[in-house]
Nucleic acid binder design. Structure first.
Length: 853
RNA sequence: GCCGAGGUGGCGGAAUCGGUAGACGCGCUAGCUUCAGGAGCUAGUGUCCGCAAGGGCGUAUGGGUUCAAAUCCCUUCCUCGGUACCA
């Protein structure tokens, strides 16, 4: 069908058909759709499966170049796997719930759903222009009832299994965005991750998911090929620490009877004799009880102030510790000593027991506090001989060789051993137990927002919290909403939504108006891709068993502790619900870098630093844009956007075009064009072409596998340049030329799918063969023999400096090489008449270094 | 402060199981070519001295190990990301 367009061999460049990507690309995209080239048959078990996943986008309106940067190399990878005979599934969808839709809706008085769906439609078109192998039949859109009903279904299962619960708790509250997860509060000044407003505290009844139940399991990354920094971040986030809980008792005084238990968590039970005071978090429940009447005013003032401690000045209070004495005392269980009880905001209510024993001699924070308020400091751990040295700061070490002092019967014991002994002894009296504590908190799951999945519960005056029965799912989010001004959840005013009858007693009841955190959607969406329209279950067990876990996941590192941890939690919970067999969602993870605006800031419409890919596609074609994004630099690095250099990549594709279309043309601008290189005949040229082709194939194959797309493109450019050198010469008529061009097209196909398909179709047509897609071709086999050089250049160093180079046959022996090297004039000159002291043959003959004194 | 990543030409970057520093591309310079296009081709391009041949110096900084260091070890400085008193 293209034969008549093929221009016959002629040295006249003017007749060469130009490379016109804007004509070629849409035509092939339509053709691929027509023949179903990108359809994945999930039931096909004749080939090994490969599930390749990239983080689905939030439909904010426009895909910017950053989206292309994420998707393009992943698409190339999917195609690379496909060419290796794997049954590749590479789906896409939209993370459609979220605040920007709601904010846009409030501002422009339109429905969040309309806003979202319009954006999705636009972004679908943009994705299609990229030529990615997405199978759109498996698209998932999370704001559709067919998806979110299963969020509700999962929630009910979690509720039944005590993995979801409701609790009154102080939550981080943003005046614009409502409740925030702990992870959504950023920075020292505690601002909202989305709008940047200062975050306050509020007490609300909230839904939680019990992520902490899986804390230990989440620390285990066995079998996961994930970047080390992500594993480190998750490990730190979970923050497991081993220690002991120790029970102190409050002492009686003139104002109260005492005898309350005061539990503390410590990782240093060996320092128990050094506890000279206690500190409670301001929100600790015993604070009102323990506050002595004479100190009530001061304590209440402090508690109130720390509840407000979200203001900017907290930055400065970070430096200087604050606190107040309650007037009460506690008794140290190990020595019955009476020590004062203070409250201070450096002790956190939400961690451990919300109370600590303060050991200023061996804890920096306690030391600082004791110093500030003139409290006692007693050293109880020291290396032998240093017992009497004054402490200028806390001595936190407890290395081997250091022993307890001032610790009664335990004095003299090694610190670690003593700690265990103390806990064991107290445990006999029920006053201590070994304990593990985590920084990880349960997942605050509810949001006081409209645009999310409704939480499927009902509040009944008689029956309390009642789950919506499965058969009543989905609880639909009403389409028409009335915002009445600003951010407050409009569901609170929607009578038709609110009013229900209790499923248990049939009496009037009220619906939950909180919706789910939108991270719920991304916690299991890759399961749903396999059966997006299944209406009797969230997943298709057989397909899930066959296709998951995901073989390769790609996405940004900013999701290290949110999405990537919730997904692991969800997978484990699903396993425990008996829904799936596996433990982990993503076998292999790669974090690509982030493309910033030219100003080095995050790309955003409001900053006006967004690069629109459509514009570039219009000018250079999708293939050029794809290739340029891969060529820019290492994929995990990202960086500020700059289009300078895109012309070079476009030039490369134009050369590929010229090579394939017009192999016998010559360059009028180059007097050497059309002649073989000096001293080469056809046989030598043929060998050189094969060598270049197969060497490149070997390198490029490895580079695809290692995500080194930038050097992969560089090597393809190099090969094209080599071919260019032989264009118009007698070598271009040889079968080796043809084979090398073929290799170039096949290697380039995953990265630049349109131009390669076009040129491939012309080759087939020229050969009188029927069309079949280049993307259905097998990845070529490497001819190792052809890829090997028969000569090599050896640099010769004298005392580590390169003084000469010599070209030798590949199989030369060290003795021969050494003789040859020493006979060189330049080498003799560099030796200056001295005899070599040593001659080093390095790297299997890659280099010779002659050492003289 | 702590955790993580990183510092290489005018620019993006290559080379890191120690072994030719600067692949490939951009930009720049010169030449060629011309259905003057946002074209194409060839050559040059780390830096200093030199007409050249050739040589000196060079991978943030200072030291060390080695025949040999961008690469390994130690010091200091800087940039980016994460985190914020977690007992």
């Amino acid at each position: 069908m293209y034969r008549e367009r093929t221009v016959t061999a002629t040295p006249d460049r003017t007749r060469i058909e130009r490379y016109e990507p804007t004509q070629i690309e849409p035509r092939w995209q339509a053709r691929w759709d027509e023949v179903g080239l990108h359809d994945t048959d999930l039931e096909d078990t004749s080939r090994p499966k490969s599930y390749i996943l990239t983080m689905y986008p939030y439909p904010s309106g426009d895909l910017h170049i950053g989206h292309w940067y994420i998707v393009t190399p992943t698409d190339a990878l999917a195609r690379f796997h496909r060419m290796h005979g794997e049954n590749v599934f590479f789906p896409i969808g939209f993370d459609a719930y979220g605040l920007p839709a709601e904010n846009a809706a409030i501002r422009n008085n339109i429905n969040p759903r309309d806003w979202t769906m319009q954006n999705i439609e636009h972004e679908r078109k943009q994705f299609r222009s990229m030529g990615a192998v997405f199978d759109w039949r498996y698209e998932v859109v999370t704001c559709e009832p067919e998806f979110y009903r299963w969020n509700q279904w999962f929630f009910l299962r979690l509720l039944e299994n005590d993995l979801a619960y409701r609790r009154m708790s102080p939550v981080d509250w943003c005046p614009n965005d409502g409740t925030l997860a702990r992870e959504q509060v950023e920075g020292v000044d505690r601002h909202c991750w989305r709008c940047g407003a200062p975050v306050e505290k509020r007490d609300l009844e909230q839904w939680y998911l019990r992520t902490t139940k899986y804390a230990d399991e989440l620390l285990n990354f066995t079998g996961l090929d994930w970047p080390e920094p992500i594993k480190v971040q998750q490990t730190n986030w979970i923050g497991r620490s081993e220690g002991a809980e120790i029970v102190f008792t409050t002492a009686a005084d003139d104002a109260h009877a005492g005898g309350e238990e005061l539990r503390v968590f410590t990782t240093r039970p060996d320092t128990l004799f050094g506890a000279t005071f206690m500190v409670l978090a301001p929100e600790h429940p015993l604070v009102p009880v323990l506050t002595h009447p004479e100190r009530r005013d001061e304590v209440e003032r402090y508690v109130a102030a720390s509840a407000r401690r979200t203001e900017i000045e907290r930055l400065s209070t970070d430096r200087d510790k604050t606190g107040v004495f309650t007037g009460s005392f506690a008794v140290n269980p190990v020595n019955d000593e009476r020590i004062p009880i203070w409250i201070a905001d450096y002790v956190l209510g939400g961690y451990g027991t919300g109370a600590i024993m303060a050991v200023p001699a061996h804890d920096e924070r306690d030391f600082e506090f004791a110093h500030r308020f003139g409290l006692a400091i007693r050293r109880v751990v020291a290396a032998p001989g240093t017992e009497d040295e004054p402490l200028e700061r806390a001595f936190v070490s407890h290395a081997a060789g250091e022993r307890l002092i001032n610790s009664g019967e335990y004095s003299g014991l090694p610190a670690y051993e003593a700690g265990r002994a103390i806990v064991a002894r107290l445990a006999e009296r029920g006053l201590a137990k070994p304990t593990v504590t985590y920084r990880l908190r349960d997942w605050l799951f509810s949001r006081q927002r409209y645009w999310g999945t409704p939480i499927p519960v009902i509040y009944c005056e008689r029956d309390g919290i009642v789950a919506v029965p499965d058969e009543d799912l989905p609880v639909r989010l009403p389409d028409t909403v009335d915002y009445r001004g600003r951010g407050e959840n409009p569901l609170n005013h929607d009578e038709t939504f609110l009013r229900v009858t209790c499923p248990k007693c049939g009496q009037p009841a009220r619906r939950e108006t909180d919706t789910m955190d939108t991270f719920v959607d991304s916690s299991w969406y890759w399961f749903r891709y396999l059966s997006p329209h299944k209406d009797d279950a969230p997943i298709d067990r057989a397909l899930v068993d066959r296709w998951t876990p995901v073989d390769q996941y790609t996405g940004g590192a900013e999701h290290a502790v949110m999405h990537l941890m919730y997904s692991r939690f969800w997978t484990k919970a699903m396993r425990d619900l008996g829904l799936i067999a596996e433990d982990e969602p993503f076998k292999r993870l790669f974090n690509q870098g982030q493309i910033l605006g030219a100003d080095g800031e995050r790309m955003s419409k409001s900053r006006g630093n967004v690069q629109d890919p459509d514009e570039l596609v219009q000018r250079f074609g999708a293939d050029t844009v794809r290739l340029f994004l891969m060529f820019m630099g290492p994929w995990d690095q990202g960086g500020p956007w700059s289009p300078s250099g895109i012309g070079g990549v476009h030039r490369f594709l134009t050369r590929v075009w010229t090579l394939a279309i017009e192999p016998h043309g010559t360059e009028p601008g180059d007097p050497e064009s059309g002649n073989l290189p000096e001293g080469e005949d056809d046989a030598a040229a043929a060998a050189a072409l094969r060598r270049a082709g197969h060497k490149t194939l070997k390198t490029v194959t490895a580079e695809y596998g290692a995500f080194k797309f930038n050097t992969m493109v560089a090597h393809l450019i190099e090969l094209a340049n080599t071919l260019m050198r032989y264009r118009g010469t007698s070598a271009a008529k040889l079968p080796e030329w043809d084979e090398t061009v073929r290799l170039l097209l096949l290697m380039l196909a995953p990265a630049a799918p349109h131009i390669t398909e076009e040129l491939w179709s012309r080759r087939l047509a020229a050969a009188g063969a029927e069309w079949s897609s280049i993307h259905s071709e097998a990845w070529p086999d490497i001819d190792e023999a052809a890829a090997t050089d028969d000569v090599r250049e050896v640099p010769i160093q004298v005392n580590g400096k390169v003084r000469d180079r010599v070209t030798v046959p590949a199989g030369i022996s060290e003795i021969e090489l050494e003789q040859l090297v020493l006979a060189r004039d330049k080498v003799q000159a560099a030796l200056g008449g001295k005899a070599p002291d040593r001659v080093i043959h390095a790297g299997g003959g890659r280099l010779v270094n002659i050492v003289i004194r």
